[in-house]
Design a protein around this nucleic acid. Structure first.
Length: 890
RNA sequence: AGGCGCGUAGCUCAGUGGGAGAGCGCUACCUUGACAUGGUAGAAGUCGGCGGUUCGAAACCGCCCGUGCCUACCA
């Protein structure tokens, strides 16, 4: 064993754990991820979708960042000025919640600390815990330029946020106004739509009688929230609803109130629902708000911020909204205005933090007028200045952008960018400036109070592509790397984030923020279910890294990343690719055994392969094709094709055929043959490593470093380029024949149930002279690969009855097997083949007998069908001969 | 309710107009000097169903069935 081990410098199995740690440390120390800004080079840049600073790496991050890392490593090797900007998002509400929960364990609330102290506390939390996800990204092998790590709340980005806010305000694109928002009466904040959870809830539908103003009749309206009737300012019906024709001229007398409210005609009303009449409460319902705008209706708020009825509720003032509901229903019933109450299951919006029923209500909020900004974004996409991959998302994008509403950017929390607007107590005007003013520029008063709201987290992330590069300064980074090349993100934030980056980038940089958008799929479990902690089907990327190695996991993610909408992650696949990594490792181990020293004579072997023996020319030709394929897949973001191209080539072409084929040369005595084999072996392996480095950085780097010669990191090697000198169609065809012959003979062996080591003799009947010469030239290789002790290659021969027989590419393979043939089984198989061939022949002949086919199909297709017809006929004839021979043995 | 997907080998998935593919699993044989995390060979599919377009459909169109997601959850 001692001497055995000396032959190899590499361990038998790939030990990823130690390798990954060692190389990542090395890369960081050598700053190999640092962006260069050299004159005259192409630029490639990506800004990371900043994960929440509270985040923990999940499989979506793993996918997202693996794809980015692949492109970044690829372009870096191509020699581009390459930058990948990392960073995290301050994630307003999420982070505030985390710290509030921490405070809760000390029996404190943020109000106990006060705003300033609380924010200090958040920063402290960020210092201690905020680096978690960054370290996890490093574990994935991400080659971000870590010295450029940014945080959406850091000094530079905060400056950019204020600058943008002030400019938009001065341009009239930011305003403060009333708006209907999702209000949480407990948290006292407006909630974004995605912060509201909708649960199906058992409720009641109240049918109320609303009398006509002239007493001539009544209309019945239905509601789940009767207390809002106090704020009703209209009843709406469909304009074409015959039942209510003319009612708009009469009006309604609102029960429990003396108010006369109008009847408005609006297409929004569904005639089929209930009675087709809708009470309109513009201050407390989103749709009613819209109707109110259309018909210029008054908005009467009947509740305060706590969900308690206010002065507009008259006698009900001071009641909680739910208590008020009971009272109102009782009063309506008593006064005869209640028609009926039905049980009703409907979805009720609840605060995602505390579960309190959300109250739609109007409140003063800050808004961005997005229409002009959105138009620019849509134009950029329509004109192809931004491309979206996969292209199925264009329609969704356009329909979202067409229906876009003004963007509510204020949030009633403490953690975030505080709105840079001050109200002057002297003159009452707004002062909106980048730096805190000492006096009011309008009246000189020094009594200024800043807005207490902070900005929506998405506001700062919308600026990410240029704020991280130093904007508003015109930095070299901005000049070199903006617009960024591609944004890779999950499709669920196309609207929240991607579209807003387009708007902001186009507005402030007058240029798109990125040329391409790649929206990757959502990772689900293998049954298509969303991964969630409660379901228990979560695949933790860090666990996968530990279990199978980061490279295997990355390769799996890449192989799954077709341009679709969902990925069903199956852990077994990761195991499969772990074996692939190990296969590569062992191929390298084999190569290394034979190429211990970098003797100069092997290094130039591949420069001009035209005089090399066939197998070398073939593998170099295949290498060239793989380079072309992998590059095309990289350039077209077809990540799964990168993986499958590498897998097929490395395992099935390189390991299965080439390495096996050249063993005779490597173990033989012919010095020239050895040198050629060693040279090509090393050259192809080097190309594999470089091609695969972007996907599996660790194992490729480790093998690379173990290869002979002085080697710098593989990251500094140039990515393989198409090499026309390697392309060799003749070699491809010749090897295909050889491989088909070998496989055919092996099949005969197996089917005769010969022992794998048993020697055979074989006859190959080749009418074609060129093919015959080729086979003769490689008869030695054929013999060793099929374990034949005798091989006759002839132009024609009688096939003995008692022989295994096959036909490949017009070459007959004959293996005499006296007494070893299972005649019945063989006949049955031939019969199955015959039927299949007959079926295919019939189909082909059907086509060729069809005038329309001959007239309409392209010539090449017709020719191909003719070739098939001939081929099938020959094979059928041979099939019949075989059967005839076998029948003699019966 | 609308919108968007998906349905291809036992499983997980590629494949967008011209002879059904991969990985895993399965079967048989094999410790041959890179690797048993391996090798060789093999079995296995009415490409969800029904219609249509086409000379030709797994692919394009329509309907149906099954399944998943996203909006709005509508008084």
């Amino acid at each position: 064993m001692q001497t055995e081990n000396k032959k190899y410098d590499l361990p038998k199995g790939y030990e990823f754990d130690e390798v990954e740690k060692r190389w990542y440390r090395y890369w960081l120390e050598q700053k190999t991820f640092a962006a260069k800004m050299e004159e005259g080079k192409d630029s490639f840049s990506i800004v990371i979708p900043p994960p929440n600073v509270t985040g923990v790496l999940h499989i979506g991050h793993a996918l997202n960042n693996t794809l980015q890392d692949i492109l970044v490593r690829y372009h870096r090797m191509k020699g581009d000025n390459t930058l990948w900007v990392p960073g995290t998002d301050h994630a307003g509400i999420a982070t505030q919640n985390v710290v509030e929960r921490q405070l809760a364990t000390e029996n404190l609330t943020r109000h106990d600390l006060g705003r300033e102290k609380f924010i200090e506390r958040v920063w402290q939390w960020r210092e201690e815990k905020g680096g978690t996800i960054i370290n996890q990204l490093k574990r994935m092998g991400a080659s971000c330029d870590w010295d450029r790590e940014r945080f959406t709340m850091d000094e530079g980005l905060s400056r950019a946020v204020r600058e943008v806010f002030v400019r938009l305000y001065n341009e009239g694109l930011i305003y403060k106004g009333d708006y209907i928002v999702n209000w949480c009466p407990r948290c006292h904040t407006a909630l974004a739509d995605d912060e509201v959870e909708h649960d199906p809830t058992e409720g009641k539908l109240y049918h109320l009688k609303y009398p006509y103003a002239d007493g001539s009749g009544e209309v019945i309206v239905a509601t789940t929230r009767p207390e809002t009737m106090l704020g009703d300012t209209a009843v709406a019906v469909h304009p074409e609803d015959e039942r209510y024709r003319g009612l708009e001229k009469i009006g309604i007398r609102l029960p429990l109130s003396d108010r006369i409210i109008p009847v408005v005609l609006d297409h929004h009303v569904q005639r089929e629902f209930g009675t087709g009449a809708l009470k309109v409460t513009p201050a407390h319902d989103r749709d009613d708000y819209e109707i109110g705008l259309r018909h210029e209706l008054a908005r009467i708020k009947v509740m305060d911020d706590h969900g308690v009825m206010n002065e507009n509720a008259g006698a009900y003032q001071g009641l909680d909204r739910f208590a008020c509901r009971k009272q109102i229903v009782a009063d309506l019933e008593e006064q005869g205005f209640l028609d009926k109450i039905e049980p009703y299951e409907h979805a009720v919006g609840k605060c995602y933090r505390c579960g309190t029923v959300v109250e739609p209500t109007t409140s003063k909020q800050w808004f961005v007028s997005v229409r002009p900004l959105a138009d620019k974004a849509v134009a950029a996409v329509r004109e192809g200045r931004i491309n979206i991959y996969p292209n199925t998302w264009y329609n969704t994008f356009y329909s979202w952008m067409d229906n876009i509403r003004d963007w509510c950017i204020s949030r009633q929390i403490w953690w975030g960018h505080r709105i840079p607007a001050w109200t002057c107590k002297g003159c009452g005007k707004f002062v909106v400036v980048v730096e805190e003013p000492e006096t009011c520029p309008f009246c000189g008063s020094s009594e200024l109070s800043q807005e207490t709201d902070v900005l929506d987290t998405w506001f700062s992330s919308a600026l990410w592509p240029f704020s991280t590069l130093g904007w508003p300064e015109n930095t070299k980074e901005l000049q070199t790397f903006y617009p960024t090349s591609i944004l890779i993100t999950s499709f669920d934030i196309l609207f929240f984030w991607v579209a807003r980056m387009m708007m902001m980038g186009l507005h402030f940089m007058d240029e798109v923020p990125f040329h391409d958008v790649y929206l990757h799929a959502l990772v689900r479990d293998k049954h298509g279910k969303k991964m969630s902690k409660s379901t228990g089907n979560v695949i933790d990327p860090l666990v996968m890294n530990d279990k199978y190695g980061t490279d295997a996991f990355r390769f799996t993610l890449t192989a799954f990343a077709a341009q679709g909408r969902e990925i069903r992650m199956d852990e077994e696949r990761i195991e499969g690719y772990r074996r692939f990594i190990n296969k590569l490792w062992n191929a390298a181990r084999f190569a290394q055994m034979h190429i211990k020293d970098a003797d100069p004579e092997i290094t130039g072997v591949c420069d001009d392969p035209s005089s090399l023996p066939l197998p070398h020319r073939w593998i170099l030709s295949r290498t060239n094709r793989t380079i072309i394929e992998v590059r095309a897949a990289l350039d077209g973001y077809n990540f799964n094709e990168i993986a499958s191209g590498l897998y097929q080539f490395t395992w099935h072409a390189f390991c299965d055929w080439y390495v096996e084929w050249i063993k005779a040369d490597l173990y033989g005595d012919d010095e020239t043959a050895r040198t050629n084999a060693r040279g090509v072996l090393l050259c192809v392996l080097e190309n594999i490593l470089k091609l695969q480095h972007p996907v599996t950085p660790f194992v490729t780097e480790e093998i690379w470093s173990q290869l002979p010669g002085e080697r710098r990191t593989i990251m500094l090697e140039s990515f393989p380029k198409e090499n026309p000198a390697w392309q060799d169609d003749e070699a491809d065809a010749a090897m295909e024949l050889l491989m088909a012959v070998i496989s055919g003979l092996r099949t005969i062996r197996t089917e005769a149930e010969l022992h794998p080591t048993a020697k055979i003799s074989a006859v190959i009947i080749v009418p074609d002279r060129k093919k015959r010469e080729l086979l003769e030239a490689f008869s030695g290789s054929i013999c060793s690969m099929v374990r034949a002790e005798k091989l006759d290659i002839v132009a024609e021969a009688e096939v003995p009855d008692d022989a295994g027989h096959a036909l490949v590419q017009e070459v007959e393979l004959v293996v005499p097997l006296s007494g070893l043939i299972d005649v019945e089984a063989e006949l049955a198989k031939l019969e199955r083949k015959r039927q299949k061939l007959n079926k295919e022949l019939a189909r082909v002949q059907g086509k060729l007998g069809n005038e329309k086919f001959l007239n309409n199909a392209p010539e090449a297709v017709v020719d191909k069908e003719r070739e098939k017809e001939t081929e099938f006929k020959v094979r059928l004839a041979k099939n019949e001969e075989s059967m005839a021979r076998l029948k003699k043995l019966q």
